[in-house]
Design a protein around this nucleic acid. Structure first.
Length: 610
RNA sequence: GGGGUGGUAGUUAAGUUGGUUAUAACGCCGGCCUGUCACGCCGGAGGCCGCGGGUUCGAGUCCCGUCCACCCCGCCA
């Protein structure tokens, strides 16, 4: 018996043909005199009819068969006439079985192999090979394959070479925590698993390869999220002799192409120029509180810091110290360390007091002390608010005006350190967006909002260490216009760093690299990295940059996230065949696990656990 | 490291103020049915109520601890 067709591909054009199908029993309906089996393979499902008067042995095999048994069927495709099933692509036809072979039986599976099952994910991960039989997962993994395939074509067509780089690399401090691998041939020493090919791709530019890409696994030993796995995949790209626009063009071309080829969506209808809009980091933080804004909906933040300063806190005890610190000059207005922000829930949302309390619980879960609220009355007065009794009428009216708040609106306030207020308000905005139905809980619902976020600061101040730290990595090129502040006022230095954002997910980021040794030395100076430290950590790269490094830059796209968004699935686990759980273990294989003492001895490694 | 939600039959869930034999649906097993396609009808089996301890005459239910899964913060591009 040799397969002639996939079950899911059969259509009316096959009527009259004899076909051979191999697949799994998706469902079996015993009518007594005849039996129907829905046979499933990777292309879909087709109904097979077993009639004892056509072939008694085939009928007997169907009689014995159960769900998930593996069958081979030889039969003739027949028109179902008036008995069609409009819900199946193959519903116009059925196969009348003339021969049936049972390749394998199956135990009763722990859950049904259906798209709409609501089995808990831990059970599905334990039996991942069964979960993978579900059409939904097969569709997602196929889309991911098409994405990678189209990408290889696009990159090749644009002159890129795919080059592999090592996974076993030298540990470099900073950035993500690395997985470590004991080096048997070097007792007491360790490799690190590469958290990205960052340094190697820059070396490929020095090596003259000009345009590099790789679809590559990366490893980071950090806590997991719905869009983070300990091993994940990037489309890694690096180019020589380019500026930011050149890199954007390559990525925009790629995205337009794959959205059309795989999702069937022509992004030119929304972005006729073939480019995505750009927003400065500063604007993104001000309006949305983070650097990956979901611009599918409004509910933008309203910055009340200036207003608060102007009114000296407006009589609100908790805001007075903040206003005074700005007035005394302790806080800089151009780089505000503490801020006041508001969000307005429109009256139309009809928010109850209890719902406001729930919101407060949400922000407290994010480390906020509380959520000041004020319900606006017909003439602008505030009710249901602890602020109402202290706030001056002038300040209250000014806040109402700044918020555009009308009768029935609910104003939500946060104040404190800029990073905390931004984080809380950004998450609160997303929470409200979903709660008010402005964005779907998951998926895009046909609304794809792409955005480049550009010109972030090069440094950020580390309050605990009381020093400047690299906001991304120390090889990012500062903006030419910012160079003068490099040593005098590092907080004002912007850089050629960019993120591409889709519907509130950061799907990629990159930078133009710093290839000027003089500027590099100044950057290290600001970071407090001494020459010998730099040599110790990045010696090979610094050496390479002195041997005729071309100007270069690149980007990396999160392949799992992009696949998740493209397929409108809910987590990157849905586009990874064998993902890890939230605790980074494998529910199916039991990894990680203990190893035999002899194995550790061979590696000269001793464990302190237990 | 912190916060939250959940864990009851193979699966998904209900389980009241602590009180008799722990329910339902789907699945599974047996029987019947030649046009079903979420087939239908009749019958049946199936439980360490995550685990450990405590309170109580009595715990699925209350308390303490612990494990696992998921979501968020910290962390991480």
């Amino acid at each position: 018996m040799k397969r002639t067709h996939y079950a899911g591909t059969l259509r009316e054009e096959h009527i009259g043909q004899e076909v051979v199908l191999f697949g799994w029993v998706a469902s079996r309906r015993d009518q007594g005199g005849c039996i129907f089996i829905d046979l499933r393979d990777r292309e879909g499902i087709a109904q097979v009819m077993f009639d004892p008067t056509v072939d008694a042995a085939a009928f007997e095999a169907a009689d014995r068969s159960r769900r998930e048994w593996v069958l081979g069927i030889r039969g003739v495709v027949r028109d179902r006439g008036t008995m069609r099933n409009p819900r199946l692509p193959t519903g116009a036809i059925e196969i009348v079985a003339r021969e049936a072979v049972v390749f394998n039986k199956s135990e009763t599976p722990p859950f049904e192999i259906l798209d709409d099952i609501d089995t808990n994910e831990d059970k599905r991960l334990e039996f991942r090979y069964l979960d993978l039989r579900r059409p939904k997962l097969q569709k997602a993994l196929r889309a991911r394959h098409l994405l990678s395939q189209a990408t290889r074509n696009h990159m090749t067509d644009n002159g890129f070479l795919e080059v592999e780089t090592p996974f076993l690399v030298k540990y470099t401090p900073g950035g993500a925590r690395n997985f470590l691998v004991p080096a048997r041939l070097h007792p007491g020493k360790f490799y690190a698993l590469a958290e990205s090919p960052q340094l190697f791709k820059q070396l490929l530019m020095v090596g003259g390869y000009d345009r590099y890409f790789q679809i590559v696994r990366c490893f980071r030993d950090e806590d997991l999220r719905i869009d983070r796995q300990p091993e994940f995949t990037q489309l890694d790209v690096e180019m020589s002799f380019v500026n930011q626009d050149d890199i954007f063009t390559i990525i925009e071309g790629l995205i337009f192409k794959v959205w059309k080829e795989i999702a069937g969506i022509d992004l030119l209808a929304k972005y006729p120029s073939g480019t995505f809009p750009r927003m400065k980091y500063d604007e993104s933080m001000r309006r949305f509180g983070n650097d990956k804004p979901d611009v599918r909906f409004g509910l933008e933040h309203i910055d009340l810091t200036e207003l608060t300063i102007e009114h000296g806190g407006g009589g609100v005890p908790m805001l007075t110290p903040l206003a005074e610190k700005y007035k005394s000059g302790e806080f800089r207005r151009d780089l505000p360390p503490e801020i006041v922000k508001a969000l307005v829930v429109p009256a139309s949302a009809n928010f109850s007091r209890t719902e406001g309390d729930k919101l407060e619980a949400v922000v407290k879960g994010m480390g906020s002390k509380g959520l000041a609220r004020a319900k606006v009355g017909p003439s602008g007065e505030w009710t249901q608010s602890p602020l109402a009794k202290n706030i001056s009428n002038e300040f209250r009216d000014a806040v109402n005006a700044a918020c555009g708040a009308k009768d029935g609106d609910l104003i939500l306030l946060q104040f404190g350190t800029a990073s905390q207020v931004h984080m809380v308000m950004a998450n609160l905005r997303l929470h409200l967006g979903k709660k008010l139905g402005l964005i779907p809980e998951s998926g895009a619902a046909g609304n794809w909002e792409f955005l480049w976020v550009v010109e972030p600061p090069l440094f950020e101040y580390d309050d605990e260490g009381k020093r400047w730290a690299a906001a991304h990595h120390p090889f990012t090129r500062p903006h030419d216009a910012s160079l003068e502040f490099l040593e005098s006022d590092p907080g004002r230095v912007l850089c050629y760093r960019y993120d591409i954002v889709l519907n509130g997910f950061e799907i990629g980021g990159g930078s133009i690299r710093l290839h000027d040794p003089d500027v590099q030395a100044k950057v290290f100076g600001v970071l407090g990295i001494r020459d010998e430290d730099a040599r110790q950590k990045f010696g090979f790269l610094l050496d390479a940059l002195r041997f005729g490094a071309p100007p270069h830059g690149g980007i990396a796209l999160g392949w799992d996230r992009l696949s998740m968004l493209l397929t409108e699935t809910e987590a990157i686990r849905d586009v990874i065949a064998f993902p890890k759980t939230q605790k980074a273990s494998d529910a199916m294989t039991g990894a990680p696990d203990r190893v035999a003492p002899e194995q550790l001895a061979e590696l000269k490694v001793k464990t302190l656990a237990e």
